[in-house]
Design a binder for these strands. Structure first.
Lengths: 162, 162
DNA sequence: TGATTTTATCTTGACGTCAAGATAAAAGAT
DNA sequence: ATCTTTTATCTTGACGTCAAGATAAAATCA
């Protein structure tokens, strides 16, 4: 009897005409997402980052040397509005974690590159990050994780079809 | 090969020392959460609501007649900061969907009650809401849903233990 | 080439959220 | 009965986000 059960039970009581079986799943996905975010934010915070900044630094890092992408490329990798990316880049620039460079091929654009400090930082943070993620799943067996991953992929396809 | 695979593959390339198997799960939970939110927001928007307003109205509705709770009770039901709840109530009050009443037992507090309009609205929205949720899961079989729900519960316990 | 459309990024204004602190009443202690 | 602590809510200021529009360069077209 977790919190999601409590909510669906209340609905069953008040609106017995409604089928809340889908809510039992979607509600748990939401709770789980929040629990993961909470755990991961602690790691980010220890390095003066938040999820938004980590996201940009990590995208640059995993793009490979020279760790350099245009705002537009960052935009399509991270699913945020364009103004949001402008803002994120500005803050990372102010922190000295990325450098804005001229894009020789297109003067409407720029190239955003990890600074040496940014590269050193993200390389360190990502190690703790994957350790945090592992800890959040630690109580699940390999079998459970494997089945869970398969069903998450199925659920993603289902949601995108809808 | 979905977007999460793309990300974990990039990490495997750039940082082969890291174990990104947990990321493959947590990343999919995040994607799924966003996909569900997106789908559900459409329903809310059709009624002039957003997830925040729906949350409060739904909490009042499922609490049962007389659909009346204190800000503090709403607070503990919805996991937001107290100032956030103040703000949500103020907006719903401005929309005429809830009424603020004196709490006879405690003059530090109030009682927030669904207005007749608020009650009629939430009763209508929640019907579409559960239909939307059902649609988001429509492509999954009953067996898949059942296993998925079990694993989500397991994952929630695991994350809370961490 | 010159005009038009498209593309890439930034700016603006509004919104929702949070943390920290303020306010006021209730509960508890002496 | 008064003082202190706790509880309940609101206020303030900062942050991150978004949608819509502005700006400027590149690409396309005539």
């Amino acid at each position: 009897m977790d919190h999601v059960d409590f909510i669906t039970d209340q609905w069953a009581q008040e609106r017995p005409d409604l089928d809340v079986s889908a809510m039992a799943i979607i509600g748990r996905v939401a709770r789980l997402y929040l629990a993961y975010q909470e755990g991961m934010q602690v790691t980010f915070g220890r390095f003066g980052l938040n999820a938004a900044k980590f996201d940009v630094l990590a995208t640059l890092r995993r793009s490979g040397a020279p760790y350099r992408l245009s705002p537009g490329a960052l935009l399509s990798a991270t699913m945020v509005a364009s103004g949001t990316m402008t803002n994120r880049i500005a803050r990372l620039e102010a922190d000295g974690l990325v450098l804005r460079q001229i894009n020789p091929g297109d003067s409407r654009s720029f190239l955003i590159e990890l600074s040496p400090e940014g590269l050193a930082l993200i390389d360190q943070v990502v190690e703790e990050h994957v350790a945090t993620q592992e800890r959040l799943l630690a109580a699940m067996s390999q079998d459970e994780r494997s089945t869970f991953k398969t069903l998450l992929s199925r659920a993603l396809v289902a949601a995108e079809q809808a």
